[in-house]
Design a protein around this nucleic acid. Structure first.
Length: 205
DNA sequence: AAGAAGATTCGCT
DNA sequence: GCGAATCTTCTTA
């Protein structure tokens, strides 16, 4: 039976053209990264939406050389560097020239776990990809990935969910000061790989 | 030209 | 719980 291990990219036609819908849609989907060292794969369990008009979004003040990827069609990688330490990976999520993105905050490790360990050092498996900076380190997210089309099998792409997503929780986003009350964080409830405090992940929000 | 803020993580107290 | 690490980008003078 061909392709038992094949991981096919999600087509652009399957993606929602709306940031909140994209943030929800991506929960449970696979993120796949291919490098010369091998392939790492994780199931997306936590996202945040940064829609048009959101003052906390990097696209808020219009298109620049730095945020250009978020003004491309849905399904492009937007990579940026923050705090002088970490890279963050986002997926563009609005029609071209609009500006919007979904931050990928946590994965459940699925494949290439030894390679993730080599990149992350000795931590519990669930901590390999729990948090956006850790996710980026485990998946070797580098600036060269900025603008990459994640709807085709390249260095990094999105693929079909290996199993249906569980119940999806919603909360305020983590670590921002502007638009802090907006309920734009999505996560698979009960998944140990989700970041955030207990307060963020309660079921009564 | 200079400065502050920033979608975080880690280690120590 | 707090602060350091460390750099890019945008804003303001």
């Amino acid at each position: 039976m061909p392709g038992r291990d094949e991981v096919r990219p999600l087509s652009r036609a399957e993606l929602p053209v709306d940031t909140m819908e994209m943030a929800r849609f991506l929960i449970g989907k696979l993120l796949v990264r291919g490098t010369p060292e091998g392939r790492t794969t994780g199931r997306i369990v936590e996202t945040e939406a940064y829609p048009p008009g959101d003052a906390s979004g990097h696209h808020f003040r219009g298109e620049t050389a730095a945020n250009r990827s978020m003004f491309l069609e849905p399904g492009r990688a937007y990579v940026y560097f923050i705090y002088g330490v970490h890279f963050m990976l986002n997926v563009s999520s609005e029609p071209a020239r609009t500006g919007g993105g979904v931050l990928l905050r946590a994965l459940e490790p699925v494949g290439g776990i030894d390679l993730m360990r080599a990149r992350r050092g000795p931590v519990r498996e669930r901590d390999l990809t729990r948090g956006p900076g850790r996710l980026a380190q485990a998946m070797a997210v580098v600036p060269e990935l900025n603008g990459v089309d994640m709807c085709e099998e390249g260095p990094i792409w999105l693929a079909e969910a290996p199993r249906p997503a569980g119940e999806i929780g919603v909360s305020v986003r983590i670590g921002i000061t502007k638009e802090a009350h907006q309920l734009r964080r999505y996560f698979e409830r009960g998944n140990p790989c989700v970041s955030g405090s207990t307060a963020h992940n309660r079921s009564d929000n």
